[in-house]
Design a protein around this nucleic acid. Structure first.
Lengths: 340, 340
DNA sequence: CAGTGTTGCTTAATCGTTTAACTAAAGTGA
DNA sequence: TCACTTTAGTTAAACGATTAAGCAACACTG
């Protein structure tokens, strides 16, 4: 078996034509006769020719690689977004390189450097929890590489963004909980410096006021939103003199931690305390009781992100500017908030 | 700001030396004076030089990219393996391209083609559930590219493999369940054509015999091991005349489905029926009751896979051969199998 | 039949980096 | 001083594909 890889040179030699003719034949250039094209393709198949992507990328100045930066892949939201990005881009001849930041700003920067070094044609990213400094992302922009943000974005970067309406989502949740008769609703939110979590917090506060419910500083807690921190913050709420009768947690993972603590304390969910999460992770339908949550339309977000990137490639003079595509999220009501 | 990218040519011009000298200086070649090296590095920094990875990869015939093929990324096992592969390889200057097959053989093949096209230096893979045809993988081997398999492997490929001892794991589980007093233990296993699931099944059968427990064909069921199928197969077991008093499920996801069905039928876990899963996914510690499971040492597997790849690169004449690295799995006993 | 197009290729430069082979200058030892 | 080694570079040819420019050969037109 041929150990060395076949190049267009081999094909050219076999047919006694130039490598240029071979290259054009393989790209169906109109200036090559049908006869030659067929001959070239036949030989290419026989020799098991596979184009050297590096060479063509170098010559054409584009790699057909798109970098994806996510906080982690082992959440259903991100893995579903990624899957859909991949599906759309593969069809157009692009491949994706997935990197995870593990919510670390340092890792995120290193990942971005890696992607730039690999000469990706674009980057689709969702920011780490830690990220406040935007230098890394500015660097991408300054290189003239399309940058598309989703879910965890930042207006100040002035780039395309795809996400859901977090502010409205909070309203939907509070609306639902008040309908269930809840009067003292707490919120375990994310860090305020992250725009989406801040929007959820603002939505929570405004909705509480709108429904003329008590606003109590003790009921609004910032959290890293891990399962472990969800446990801690829920315990904190239970330790209050005046306990809430409902808790809205800005992430399903943290909500899961909260759920465990409630059960360990033999608290009746939802009758003593109702619980609503965020993200509609598959496990929300699997725990007992099943957990109400917000569906973020991950598939749609992935598709839109990929299509937005493609728009940038197709439109050469398209300049980066703040262009938000906001999807309307959907509240999935399950047992954890259905008060009898 | 410089819109065009800086190349070694720019550095060479700035210092009136050759590009060769610049290249060598940047690689700390011994034949370049310290003075020149320093000057080159200084100018490189000033001009914000970033090496063109494509060019160097083309010239050196290696891309420093490693492809990873997994069934999916949104399981803790795979995402943890990936994270550890990445950690080890990044340190050595390699980047990884992650692709998911979604358990589809077709997608797996396309992913592999993509990776080969991208000129990866090696591929680390875990096979899709569907995969029985090994042509795609033979293709990798025939190109002379190192292939390392983990978890879902296949002896016939004669390549490196890293995994746990599935056969022994089954023994551990049956041992534990009999100690708890279980006498009629069922197994919801994976498809027999997948080696690891077959090993778990063989382990189950042999352990049952060893403990002189009844072997009943109705107690051994093959499954796709999704949560949904776990529900179906558990229901099937409940419909039996003579129900089991323990069920060992070959995947945590399917075990979760089983757990739901048991709860819906108001069956006391573990006292009526004990339950053990496989994989030690984080949710096993979060559901009620917490689910006993097998820790597969994902971090260790990722590290070993990466290190095995590096061994192939370092040892030029290392030929591909069946070399198994088997880790001893650990049984994590939780409430679902602690009979009072 | 000269002029103009069209067809179907070839030539050669190019992308940015690496590296084998060469060279000039300086240093070393007897 | 001569022969030899060491040092610090330079030159030029790759790597494999793409593409602008060139050029035969033939067809067509008025």
């Amino acid at each position: 078996m041929a150990n060395k890889k076949t190049t267009i040179k081999d094909i050219a030699n076999a047919l006694s034509i130039s490598t240029a003719a071979v290259s054009k034949a393989l790209h169906d250039d109109s200036r090559i006769s049908t006869k030659t094209k067929e001959a070239v393709k036949k030989v290419a198949k026989e020799l098991n020719y596979q184009p050297n992507h590096l060479a063509s990328a170098l010559r054409r100045g584009k790699s057909n690689l798109v970098g994806v930066v996510v906080p982690r892949t082992n959440s259903n939201f991100f893995s579903s977004v990624i899957q859909n990005i991949e599906e759309v881009l593969n069809k157009k001849g692009y491949n994706i390189i997935i990197t995870q930041s593990n919510e670390s700003y340092q890792k995120e920067c290193r990942n971005i450097d890696t992607l730039l070094f690999t000469q990706v044609d674009g980057i689709i990213a969702s920011m780490a929890n830690e990220t406040t400094n935007l230098d890394c992302f500015e660097k991408i922009k300054s290189k003239g590489i399309p940058l598309i943000l989703f879910d965890r974005g930042e207006n100040d970067l002035n780039v395309d963004y795809i996400g859901i309406n977090d502010y409205d989502s909070s309203h939907m949740i509070i609306e639902h909980l008040t309908q269930q008769g809840c009067k003292r609703i707490a919120h375990i939110g994310g860090y305020r410096h992250t725009r989406i979590f801040n929007n959820r917090i603002r939505g929570y506060i405004d909705a509480i006021k709108k429904h003329k419910l008590p606003t109590d500083d003790a009921l609004l807690i910032e959290s890293s939103l891990t399962t472990e921190d969800g446990r801690l913050k829920m315990q904190q709420l239970l330790d209050l003199e005046d306990r809430p009768d409902a808790v809205y947690v800005a992430s399903d993972y943290a909500a899961l931690g909260a759920l465990q603590v409630l059960q360990e304390n033999n608290i009746d969910i939802p009758n003593d305390i109702a619980l609503v999460g965020f993200g509609d992770e598959p496990f929300t339908g699997m725990v007992t009781p099943t957990l109400s949550s917000i569906n973020q339309h991950s598939a749609e977000i992935g598709k839109l992100a990929a299509e937005t990137f493609l728009k940038h490639v197709d439109t050469t003079d398209l300049k980066q500017t703040l262009h938000k595509q906001i999807l309307q999220a959907e509240l999935i009501i399950r047992d954890s908030s259905k008060i009898k």
